[in-house]
């Protein structure tokens, strides 16, 4: 597989956005897309700047036949700006982008799907703006509830290591040395299901649309304290669904169990699924999500 950043033409899509546009906050522009016009609206925030809104491509065509779907490229990738400070990538900034996209698209209320790190951003949005979030789905999400370190926390991010085997690649120096090497490793861990070459290739291409320098800022960005996160969970009042693969090699399944416990949400476990189950098992995920949305609508 050879992928050269910036040289790829965008693939054709099963469905193209109805309106699209930018919303600007503090000089940072975020690009959004709206599909369909059913009710309610489903907001699919990005999970981390290593990918952008195309990560939802298996959801958009199906869900937008039943509901209205809003996606956006998170700051740092896709058609959004790449601000040059770590503060700009903080979790509260990310939640504020989600809110700004809801405002810009005239969306009073949405069902929000918080995927991976996006689970934290969606939690902030739902807890602090409960009137805007009709229901919340955590998908392969991490809220930091774990006694054991996550795989990507096994090695210190800032120190020069004498190895770059496995998760030792989760390291500032390695990223600067070989960003593509990291992206390929990371997505091999995201897509543990057999026959994932296409999905890995897509995601590696998206990962190469940002840079190691930008991604380091996302690692340095301000994060909630664990107590704050727990407190936000107690404030949730909307219906909660937690979907997690039991072979997730990035955010272990126990995290989904802990989130369901902390939020009183219903846990749906996908047997044999990895971190990006909505990509590898889209029909099943789309049906589970549709059923959830219809149950709260």
């Amino acid at each position: 597989m050879t992928i050269v950043a910036g040289e790829r033409a965008e693939q054709t899509r099963a469905r193209y956005p109805d309106p699209e546009g930018y919303v600007e906050r503090d000089g940072v522009r975020v690009f959004y897309e709206v599909y369909g016009h059913g009710e309610p609206t489903i907001l699919l925030p990005p999970p981390w700047a290593i990918v952008y809104s195309r990560v939802w491509k298996m959801q958009i065509p199906y869900l937008s036949r039943h509901f209205r779907v809003v996606v956006y490229d998170g700051r740092g990738n896709g058609r959004s700006d790449r601000p040059a400070s770590a503060e700009a990538y903080g979790e509260r900034e990310q939640a504020a982008d989600a809110l700004a996209v809801l405002d810009a698209t005239g969306t009073e209320q949405a069902v929000v799907v918080g995927f991976s790190w996006g689970g934290k951003w969606s939690l902030i949005l739902a807890a602090e703006h409960p009137e805007r979030v009709k229901a919340l789905c955590f998908l392969g999400a991490s809220l930091g509830f774990s006694r054991e370190p996550f795989p990507y926390e096994l090695y210190p991010f800032d120190e020069e290591l004498d190895t770059d085997e496995g998760w030792a690649k989760e390291n500032r120096h390695y990223w600067l040395r070989d960003w593509q090497g990291y992206v390929e490793w990371f997505f091999s861990q995201c897509f543990t299901e057999p026959h994932s070459t296409k999905h890995i290739e897509d995601a590696v291409g998206w990962g190469l649309e940002t840079t190691a320098e930008t991604m380091i800022l996302t690692e340095e960005a301000p994060e909630l304290e664990l107590d704050e996160t727990r407190e936000l969970c107690t404030r949730l009042t909307c219906p909660i669904l937690v979907v997690h693969g039991d072979e997730d090699a990035v955010v272990p399944h126990a995290q989904g169990v802990a989130i369901a416990e902390a939020t009183g949400g219903r846990l749906v476990t996908f047997g044999g699924s990895g971190h990006c189950l909505q990509v590898r098992d889209p029909v099943r995920f789309n049906l589970v999500l549709r059923q959830f949305v219809e149950s709260v609508a």
Partner: peptide, 9 residues
């Protein structure tokens, strides 16, 4: 063709 692992299997 690329991404043929399933078909090969």
């Amino acid at each position: 063709e690329p991404h043929s692992t399933k078909q090969i299997e």
